[in-house]
């Protein structure tokens, strides 16, 4: 039945991997796991439709519910609002990293992964990479819709794309954190519930929708210095203009810092429990 034997002998099996091979396989395995989620997603068109509806709905609701009421912000409120909605949407989109990771832990397929010669970390890195890919589409969709409801880039295409990149980097840093939550609570329902108390204050007590200046002083202190505001400010600077460098650098530092802390924690947690 089998033409060529794939069977490995003991010596080959025991040959240690070089550092280079290890890195190469980490990338290859991450790609395979990311492919696993994306291939599964393509098979569920209804789930794609629903996950597309949420960002679109957020854009439309915030644009038309708040868009009229809040004036007095310099320039167009739509232009002011849109980067905030983008950040909020990728933040809420990260819930899927928590739920997905917790769901995976409850499935037997993880048990099989553990018995395969794959890089263990790839189960988590693959998860965050597939979430990143999904976010690319959701941000494109939101931007297109944003343009349709009056959003205009006030800087240039390059700066706008840089803002887009900043947004995706932030979404990726959140994926790690939320995957970690999923790994900690291990139950999809609990994971979903656990993310809400984090998301609500960070997205609403921020500069995403309104200028922080109207909030009480103690809240301002939080709102000014928390990552969501920093990312929003960075995106705004890149998309709407104004002083750019500091905002963007702070936003980059936050995102990279979050990845640097959360990624190892998530991977370690996974290798410990699974």
């Amino acid at each position: 039945m089998t033409t060529t034997s794939l069977r490995v002998d003991v010596a080959t099996a025991m040959a240690p991997m070089t550092r280079r091979e290890r890195v190469r396989w980490l990338f290859a395995d991450t790609f395979t796991i990311a492919w696993r989620f994306l291939a599964a997603m393509v098979r569920m068109p209804d789930s794609i439709a629903f996950s597309a509806i949420q960002p679109m709905l957020l854009v439309l609701l915030f644009r038309y519910v708040f868009g009229g009421a809040i004036a007095g912000v310099h320039g167009s409120y739509v232009n002011y609002l849109m980067p905030g909605i983008f950040v909020q949407t990728v933040a809420f989109g990260a819930i899927i990293s928590a739920v997905g990771m917790a769901e995976d832990l409850q499935k037997g397929v993880i048990e099989r992964f553990r018995a395969l010669p794959m890089a263990r970390a790839a189960v988590v890195t693959g998860r965050t990479m597939s979430d990143l890919t999904r976010n690319v589409f959701s941000v494109i969709l939101m931007t297109a819709l944003g343009f349709a409801v009056g959003f205009r880039v006030e800087t240039n295409a390059f700066a706008f794309l840089a803002g887009f990149g900043l947004l995706l980097l932030f979404s990726w840093s959140l994926s790690w954190g939320f995957a970690l939550i999923g790994l900690l609570v291990r139950n999809p329902e609990t994971a979903q519930l656990a993310t809400i108390p984090i998301l609500l204050p960070f997205t609403f007590a921020s500069s995403a929708f309104v200028p922080v200046g109207t909030m009480p002083g103690w809240l301002q202190a939080f709102a000014n210095n928390q990552p969501v505001s920093q990312i929003v400010n960075g995106c705004r600077a890149l998309m709407n203009g104004g002083p750019t460098e500091t905002h963007v650098l702070i936003a980059l530092a936050w995102s990279l810092g979050l990845v640097a802390v959360l990624a190892p924690l998530a991977v370690r947690r996974y290798t410990r429990i699974a």
């Binding site: 599964a40 499935k107 037997g108 048990e111 018995a115």
Partner: peptide, 22 residues
């Protein structure tokens, strides 16, 4: 305990395991 991925096809599952077996 060692299950397969419910959402993937039979071929995709085997392909995935092949790739993860390097």
């Amino acid at each position: 305990n060692a299950a397969v991925d419910e959402n993937l096809s039979g071929r995709q599952n085997l392909l995935m395991i092949g790739r993860l077996s390097h």
